[in-house]
Design a protein around this nucleic acid. Structure first.
Length: 586
DNA sequence: GCCGTTTTCGGCCCGACTGTTTTCAGTCG
């Protein structure tokens, strides 16, 4: 069955090809909006279409045409219009667009005038000096293109948020020591807490642009200055990451922060709303709009983000929610959720030790968890099927539990250690450990690690049967995806959630930066169904416990509050909300 | 191509920087 992601990517490809053709910019945007709308949908379009009652044009950004194209794609696996486009434009020319500074117009000229289809041919044309002869191109353009080759070849690689955070924090402390810097914020997708980050946006409040830019240039990771103007400067780091710096005056800092935090789509809505109110919003402030929509008079807001939102009669909206989903509607109606924070988490219910593939002992994990302010942990090593990790059989598992029993005596009463297991859901749908063993556990995680290429029906059945097992508490990393590395396995999450709800089970938001599984859309769907989410570290070392905050960011983007997340509660309360019939602890 | 308490046409967010230009187009975010 075709996934929403595949549909979205098809629409994106059409948009790319239309852009290359020089089509109407708003038509192109309509395809991109449609792609986003499909991606934001928790239920697969292909499934929805089975129901004759469902009208796809009710989805935002999907009209008659895109609905028909969805149908065509689901029924025929392709779209005639896309096939037609692909006959006219070799798909390889799209790689030209990945060169910084080369957009659809210039790429189209290269294709039309010089017959260039791919990056290799483009490099040759630049080296032989034929590109500079084209109208609108020059020697500098050739130079820029050649310089951008390596970037284009490695393009599309967005780094994990956690990696961006490491760079961002170093950059922040480096720049903050510059006296000319009055305020500093990182904006963009980093501030919105997206799973991956394509570049960093740094915003500085200063009246001494040159001093700030000089300092920026001295950051140890800087490999290259891409551009430097009066307010804006861009560099490329040695890692290939681009960092953009903007320097603005204090009066504009909030407007600029709002603007550069995005998302682009959120800002379109913000500006549209401003327009309705007779205002104009740009990165310098909020202004009254003249007859032709131009800014008139002094700014009426701009020094803080709160002011900017207030000017358009909205409360401040957390950056994680600024994706043009429901946030404006919530803000208008006073229904913005109070998002969960990292401090709200008081337990961690998924971690490994040296008994299997972890690097630290049970004692070390407990000490580290207490040091981090947690009040309970579950020790959840792998089960025997995971031979690579030296998974536990019933005998070794019971001996680990005896060890935990002994340890409990030496641990203060205010900290709870749970006897847990991450038990594999085998390829045939049975659990890797017998019921009489699982029954003795305080906390049972069920996971799919093997047979990820099975059919959608099979994998769904496996997970559903695990949920029907009375001893299972939670499904770990429910889609199995690894960001940038592995697609999710095929699974009917709607069916999984229905059964989870029915049996009072929990779903995991695995906080490992490479997993972040469930994603934001699915977490929001779980919340809507009243299924609790547990944010877990899946730590394989002491440091592994620190990833919980990445999971919290993901939960915030899903609009989750502390009430939606199970491990914001103490263990006894958590046990109660689950109706945990087999819990032995306390 | 989408959308509509300014509805079925005419809008659709906005500014900085660069290179190739003699006043602006293309790209980017």
């Amino acid at each position: 069955m075709i996934t929403n992601n595949q549909i979205a990517e098809t629409f994106e490809q059409i948009a790319d090809l239309l852009e290359f053709q020089g089509a109407n910019a708003f038509r192109i945007r309509a395809y991109r909006n449609g792609a986003r709308s499909v991606r934001d949908l928790a239920d697969p379009i292909a499934g929805l279409m089975q129901d004759p009652e469902v009208d796809l044009t009710k989805l935002p950004g999907i009209g008659k045409d895109l609905a028909a194209k969805c149908r065509e794609l689901v029924e025929h696996g392709t779209i005639a219009m896309l096939e037609e486009l692909l006959r006219e434009i070799p798909v390889s020319v799209l790689s030209l667009l990945r060169i910084p500074g080369l957009g659809p117009k210039k790429a189209a000229v290269l294709h039309r005038e010089l017959g260039i289809d791919n990056l290799e041919q483009l490099a040759e044309a630049c080296q032989s000096g034929t590109v500079r002869k084209l109208k609108g191109f020059g020697a500098k353009t050739e130079e820029q293109i050649l310089k951008g080759m390596a970037i284009a070849e490695a393009a599309g690689q967005r780094i994990y948020w956690a990696r961006a955070d490491e760079i961002a924090q170093r950059l922040r402390s480096f720049l903050s020591s510059c006296e000319a810097v009055r305020q500093l914020e990182l904006a963009g997708s980093y501030r919105r807490g997206k799973e991956t980050v394509g570049d960093l946006d740094v915003l500085v409040d200063s009246s001494n642009v040159n001093e700030v830019m000089d300092r920026f240039q001295q950051f140890e990771d800087v490999a290259d200055v891409i551009q430097r103007g009066d307010t804006k400067m861009s560099v490329r780091l040695r890692s290939g990451l681009q960092v953009d710096l903007r320097v603005v005056p204090t009066a504009s800092f909030g407007a600029a922060l709002q603007y550069f935090t995005g998302s682009k789509e959120h800002n379109v809505l913000v500006r549209g709303r401003a327009k309705e109110l007779g205002l104009r919003v740009n990165e310098y402030g909020v202004y009254r709009a003249g007859e032709n929509g131009e800014a008139v008079g002094p700014s009426i807001a701009g020094s803080t983000e709160e002011d900017v939102y207030r000017a358009i009669k909205l409360p401040w909206i957390a950056p994680e929610l600024r994706e043009a989903r429901k946030e404006l509607q919530w803000a208008e109606q006073g229904e913005l959720p109070t998002l969960i924070t990292a401090e709200d988490l008081i337990g961690d219910l998924h971690m490994h030790t040296t008994a299997t593939d972890g690097a630290a002992s049970i004692e070390e994990m407990i000490a580290a968890a207490r040091q981090r302010g947690l009040r309970y942990v579950a020790i959840t090593d792998h089960s025997r099927r995971v031979t690579m990790a030296n998974g536990l059989d019933p005998k070794r598992l019971r001996s680990q539990w005896q060890q935990i029993d002994k340890l409990r005596a030496s641990i203060p009463d205010d900290f709870v250690v749970l006897k847990g297991i991450e038990c594999d859901i085998l390829e045939d749908g049975t659990m890797d450990l017998p019921d009489d063993v699982l029954e003795e556990a305080d906390w049972v995680i069920a996971s799919v690690h093997y047979g990820q290429n099975q059919s959608r029906e099979r994998i769904t059945e496996r997970i559903v049967s695990a949920l029907e097992n009375p001893h299972v508490d939670v499904i770990a990393h429910p889609t199995g995806r690894l960001i940038n590395r592995r697609e999710p396995y095929q699974v009917d999450l709607e069916a999984v959630m229905r059964v989870a709800k029915q049996h009072g089970k929990i779903l995991e938001l695995n906080a490992n930066p490479a997993r972040l599984d469930l994603n934001d859309v699915h977490c929001a769907a779980a919340k809507a169904m009243g299924i609790p989410i547990v944010i877990s570290s899946d730590a394989h070392s002491v440091e592994g416990l620190d990833v919980l905050r990445y999971g919290v960011l993901q939960a915030r983007r899903a609009g989750l509050t502390r009430h939606d997340v199970a491990n914001t509660r103490g263990w006894p309360e958590l046990k109660k909300i689950m109706g945990h019939p087999h819990a032995k602890q306390q």
